[in-house]
Design a protein around this nucleic acid. Structure first.
Lengths: 339, 339
DNA sequence: CTGTTAGCGCATTCAC
DNA sequence: GTGAATGCGCTAACAG
């Protein structure tokens, strides 16, 4: 059994002041660069700081200044590649700013989401980033009265709330239009969950692309999924069980596309030779599926970065514009011209 | 442009006290159940609390009690399915405890890791969970003098530090032994990065399984990877470039197995018909690869849960035992008997 | 330039 | 039972 070093209690600013023979305020001044201090005292203080290994107590600082230097992030699922990419953007956006983030999950549930936000507020986070939130815009606006909020998936723009909204409909259109150009006409759609805004828009884009090509949408080719792998698998199974004919599948997100792919594999159907497949998101894993997935790229990382920068501006009382990076079709190897 | 409600400044315990006509201490007592309070005052206070929508300022509470009710988590990569699963376990372990977590990334770098831990300490986290840390055991022990630490991948057991260590060697042995039982003798190994402890152990397990079967390890079949998809792809390319013969590949983690799979697909080699493949980790995505991946399951979620529970005990000064869930071979569809 | 004073919001003595 | 007083560690006037 190894024994841990018993360490002295963390030193305070007061300790430093005593050791350096100056007043606490002087130490504070040096720490924050709040005022000029004579060189000799500065040196003495700096020496004392390293000597006792001092680091300011952030709770005390926060209490005093009213800023905790932490922001809250609300995701829906803490272990999803979808949120991961965005979190990476947030992380990079926070780098070197002194901010840290506490991440909580709303589990796709508006009530839980609101509850979590209340907890974040009690923790005095300086701002909140809400990703794929289920709560109403009104609720978001309400909370933004306490702390600035940046939220994905909605169109807001006040002094303390900003929405970052991508054009899901256009993204879906890109995917389906690509398929149509390859000669596909019977294109199945594995949708997202009902009452999901993004999912609705993608359906709309799918329908619009078809209609623009004078293809009458066939309700039997549209089957509801839930954004998870399993639902893609189930959906295609259902399509076959009901004897549908189709040469391509558009899945409302990459995860369900993975499920579609597996189902096709099980049935011995080749992709893209027999059936083409397009996803939506471009998760990091999608360039390593077999074969690599053609999909609509969401700039998840950039969204995280943009949201973070915007939030910092809101916190500082600055104005924000809303630049939103575009969706983009990434053609890889799951689609081919129909023969 | 919509306008956000301008909300009143957050109410304090003092506001509640005034409104209820009692002293601040009484309010505090009711909040914390610290002492008996007459029923009428309790009611008045409760009413006041909901009326002004009061929630205690956690920074003030923390400053006073010396506990921030937050723990720090150090991961190496904030957007990796590997850490995700563990984080989910941590999240569930924290549920209902009043604790929140701030997650930082060490980016596989010992210096950065130490730096992050110092930041967490300045934030007065009550404890730290270090996942796949690169720093030395001594450094961990050092930090554990300030706050309790639970760390994966090492064998520690003091009053304020606990290591949770899985038997990587055995896991690798399971994988290779499985392959050998299927008749494979030329088994390639895509290793992890050099100087990575887990990676070393997996190599050892691979070698041991071979030797136990009287198969002389062929150094040419061992190629170094880095745990990323691309390295698996590169590794197999290298194997073919150097004209190696092999009927199976064991990849040191699932991500590199994905890369191996893609490389094989590109070369028109069937899995498992021509070559068998085994990974290590059992990431959530591994049951949806094409075909589903045979792999060694790491109980990532459980590790997160166990680490969290252990940390809470350490924080409370309780003793901890170290139960560690076993590694387990999950046979799916990328391995088959050699013909 | 620098020390003294006064809180930030809360929990906890100590008296009553 | 309950109020008054004190201080957690730090910053921001306020004097000098």
């Amino acid at each position: 059994m190894i024994h841990a070093d018993t360490s002295p209690p963390p030193s305070t600013l007061m300790d430093v002041a005593r050791l350096a023979g100056v007043s606490p305020s002087t130490v504070s001044r040096i720490l924050n660069g709040t005022a000029r201090v004579s060189e000799d005292k500065r040196l003495a203080v700096l020496a004392a700081i390293t000597k006792v290994n001092f680091a300011p107590n952030q709770m005390a600082q926060g209490l005093k200044k009213g800023r905790s230097m932490t922001i809250g992030i609300v995701v829906q699922d803490i272990s999803s590649p979808f949120f991961d990419e965005t979190l990476r953007g947030v992380d990079d956006g926070l780098k070197g700013t002194g901010y840290a983030s506490v991440i909580v999950s709303g589990h796709w549930n508006a009530e839980e989401e609101a509850e979590r936000i209340r907890l974040l507020l009690a923790r005095k986070v300086d701002g909140i980033i809400l990703l794929s939130g289920r709560m109403s815009d009104e609720a978001v606006l309400q909370f933004s009265g306490q702390r600035p909020i940046v939220s994905t998936g909605r169109a807001l723009h006040t002094r303390s709330a900003l929405g970052i909204k991508l054009d899901n409909e256009h993204g879906a259109w890109l995917a389906v239009h690509h398929l149509i150009e390859l000669g596909h006409r019977r294109i199945a759609f594995v949708s997202g969950p009902a009452n999901n805004h993004d999912a609705d828009e993608r359906l709309t884009g799918y329908l619009r692309a078809l209609r623009e090509a004078d293809i009458g949408p066939d309700p039997k080719l549209i089957v509801e999924g839930n954004f998870h792998e399993s639902s893609g698998l189930l959906a295609v199974n259902h399509l076959f069980d009901t004897q549908q004919q189709f040469s391509a599948v558009f899945a409302a997100n990459d995860l369900s596309a993975y499920g579609v792919r597996l189902c096709l594999y099980r049935k011995g159907i080749r992709v893209p030779d027999d059936i083409s497949l397009v996803g939506f998101d471009d998760l990091p894993g999608s360039s390593y599926t077999t074969p690599p997935l053609t999909t609509v790229r969401q700039p998840l990382y950039d969204i995280g970065l943009i949201a973070t920068n915007a939030l910092r501006r809101l916190i500082n009382g600055d104005t924000v514009g809303s630049e939103v990076p575009p969706l983009e079709l990434i053609v890889r190897e799951t689609t081919r011209r129909v023969r």
